[in-house]
């Protein structure tokens, strides 16, 4: 599919870093080809007509104009191509995305919680279960209102950046504390609205390591333009080491983690 990426490349599509992202780019490339063919066809016809049938060249108009069924054939061709794109690619791909959710102990789970104007990532710890969070427990020291008494919360920890391992399936559960935000991960070809009062999952499998900015893609107030987040995809062993480092020992009193080194540039 990389061989057929001319239009995407010309239009400056950024590199893809998720497994399904290649298919998205592929579909986009095909749709762009359909558009290009139609655009060139129409434009050529248009320009030819303007030159050929201007009053000077063609003082007497023809009442009947185009005879024959060329236009019907073009219409039918467009319908067929669109049907192929839908039935052959878009529907099966989305069916796979929306119903074949990964499961099992290997799946990385993160809760991404938005607020004006930052993200907090909630990792479930080794038990892979999130502790309860309640909005009336939210305070300066407990930004997500996690009920630290909850048995599942004992090994949970918070982080300001989205850190994920490469080549493992990840489920990011997106929600918001105040208004609607949106977690937009361009290298993963994913976006998900963070809607207060509901939780929505997005899943993908990173295929290359790197560090990228995440975008808040839904207007969330005056500081919206500065709600820059970061996503880092690590080698698996680095990720495991990082994870272990952040999991609080079971007896220790829980304190939310502050971001160790990288400060966000938004303000």
């Amino acid at each position: 599919m990389q061989t057929l990426g001319i239009i995407n490349e010309m239009l400056g599509l950024p590199e893809v870093a998720s497994e399904h992202g290649g298919m998205v780019d592929h579909l986009l490339e095909m749709v762009h080809w359909l558009m290009l063919v139609l655009l060139i066809g129409w434009s050529a016809f248009f320009v030819y007509c303007l030159a050929r049938f201007r009053t000077k060249k063609n003082p007497k108009a023809d009442y009947h104009g185009v005879q024959g069924h060329a236009s019907h054939h073009i219409e039918i061709a467009v319908v067929v191509v669109e049907a192929v794109l839908l039935l052959g690619f878009a529907f099966p791909l989305w069916a796979q995305r929306s119903t074949d959710y990964p499961s099992g102990p290997d799946v990385v789970r993160v809760r991404a919680v938005a607020e004006q104007y930052k993200w907090t990532m909630h990792y479930p710890g080794p038990d892979n279960k999130f502790g309860l969070s309640k909005s009336d427990l939210i305070s300066g020291g407990n930004p997500l209102g996690i009920d630290w008494e909850d048995i599942n919360a004992k090994d949970d920890f918070l982080y300001t950046e989205l850190v994920l391992p490469v080549n493992r399936e990840c489920i990011v559960t997106v929600t918001s504390k105040d208004v609607i935000h949106n977690l937009s991960l361009h290298p993963m070809r994913m976006q998900q609205d963070a809607i207060p009062g509901s939780v929505s999952d997005m899943w993908f499998k990173p295929i290359s390591t790197g560090r990228w900015q995440t975008i808040c893609g839904q207007l969330c107030g005056a500081g919206h333009g500065g709600m820059v987040g970061y996503m880092e995809v690590m080698e698996e062993k680095d990720f495991d080491a990082w994870y272990k480092e952040n999991v609080p020992s079971a007896k220790e009193e829980k304190l939310p983690e502050a971001d160790p080194e990288k400060s966000d540039k938004a303000s």
Partner: peptide
């Protein structure tokens, strides 16, 4: 997109055989 394409195509095809001012 299909009715939209039909509308636009009809307008384009109209040009054929015209005497365009």
């Amino acid at each position: 997109s299909i009715p939209s394409v039909i509308l636009l195509t009809c307008l384009f095809i109209s040009l054929w055989g015209g005497s365009i001012r």
